[in-house]
Design a protein around this nucleic acid. Structure first.
Lengths: 227, 227
DNA sequence: TCCTAACCTGAAGCTTCCTTCATCTAATCA
DNA sequence: TGATTAGATGAAGGAAGCTTCAGGTTAGGA
């Protein structure tokens, strides 16, 4: 049983004329729609092509295989978000921690909710083997940008920026995922956004209150509390 | 094109003798392993059976189809976590908010990290159409339990417990997912757990400091901050 | 206008796997 | 110990869908 290393993974033709650019775009768009309509399991290349108004052959002219198609759609979406985060981080270097968090949360949510459908659809592909890789790459971009921003804060930060970034991103991702997965009625978005900012700010304050070296009382058992 | 509503979805035979119980367990275990080794896309029932040391036929005696197998594995894992959370919530009714959060965070992380491999493997199935349903069910269980606990706190809670629960779970899920997906070196777990508790407590304090009716300064633009 | 390259088409080959079922073995009980 | 039920087997049917390719159409330049 030789490992199936199908050779034809060379990137396909890339669009030159206007009509082909349109095709590629339609295909990517159709991918999202099909994903939303039937889920990843029942997404077929033929179905995507049909939806996009082109033939399967055309699809395979720009994407070497089904998986590449899915990854491309995922990448396109995540890149937009990464860009938006990096921009915010750049724009807020040297400001207050509070300013930073507020801007970060707002930007992230805005980017993620810009089109909810796409975000939801892509959860289907974000957690297969290849999807995870793509996600990981983007995560690295977020992380770095945020750490850099935090490190430039006008106030001193009592905790390593990596840790803080981890917490902020965890909160951000976790809450937004919850919102998206739970049907996401528009109205809850704004209050939750505010709540997240409250939480993040409260956390940062708590960080500042701590001495640089950890002074959290140690906790060894699940039944003993930091009071 | 009739919707494919394959009839034979009746639940199969359930194990009676000891050996069959062992088989079912081996199959479920093998599912996780195969999931980890090759991912969901390349998981085949034959491969799972082989790994479990039984034949495909045996597998199909207990699981009506491949998907049911995956869902069963997912459900088993999530149920353990739900149980653990519900227990903690029950055991901490009427205590301090701080006690509650600390216990909650600790219990959740412990349950999730008990065996990291399983948790990671099941991310692959947790976000397909059916997996999402299962996850949603469990989420409801978490939510209710936590809301009930929060509502019983010895101190008054200035914010609706649903909102608080949402935030806490968002944080919890988000951070733990980050940990799991990023390779999860054991050593980072404890500091992050503490950090989460710090964050959650800081948030609860901030909540108490607010008057019952929202007094968060309103924010209308992404470029205006709550100072 | 004609030619070449870009682009599009979709039937069919081929592979992969899910699932069944006829048959065999092991356990349990009278 | 013989009968009955539970459990296990794995070759083979069959469906589904990815991908190719030989042959058409369109666009743009000479």
């Amino acid at each position: 049983m030789p490992p199936r290393l199908k050779v034809p993974l060379e990137p396909r033709k890339s669009p030159v004329q206007a009509r082909s650019v349109a095709s590629v775009d339609a295909i990517l768009e159709a991918t999202i729609q099909v994903l939303l309509q039937v889920g990843k399991e029942r997404l077929t290349t033929t179905r995507v092509a049909l939806r996009a108004g082109v033939s399967v052959g055309t699809l395979y002219q720009y994407f070497p295989n089904k998986n590449a198609l899915l990854q491309a759609a995922l990448k396109r979406h995540l890149s937009e978000i990464s860009d938006s985060i990096e921009r915010v981080c750049r724009d807020h270097k040297g400001t207050t921690l509070r300013h930073m968090v507020t801007a970060l949360m707002t930007a992230f949510l805005q980017a993620k909710m810009r089109d909810v459908k796409t975000s939801v659809a892509l959860y289907y592909v974000s957690s297969d083997v290849d999807g995870a890789k793509t996600v990981q790459q983007m995560r690295t971009r977020y992380d770095k940008a945020i750490v850099r921003m935090l490190a430039s804060a006008s106030e001193p930060l009592a905790v390593e920026p990596e840790i803080v970034a981890s917490m902020l991103l965890g909160l951000l991702m976790g809450v937004s995922r919850r919102i998206l997965e739970s049907g996401a009625p528009e109205q809850y978005l704004e209050p939750l956004r505010r709540e997240m900012i409250v939480m993040a700010c409260a956390y940062l304050d708590a960080c500042s209150a701590r001495s640089p070296i950890q002074d959290t009382p140690s906790v060894n058992e699940s039944t003993r509390y930091t009071n």
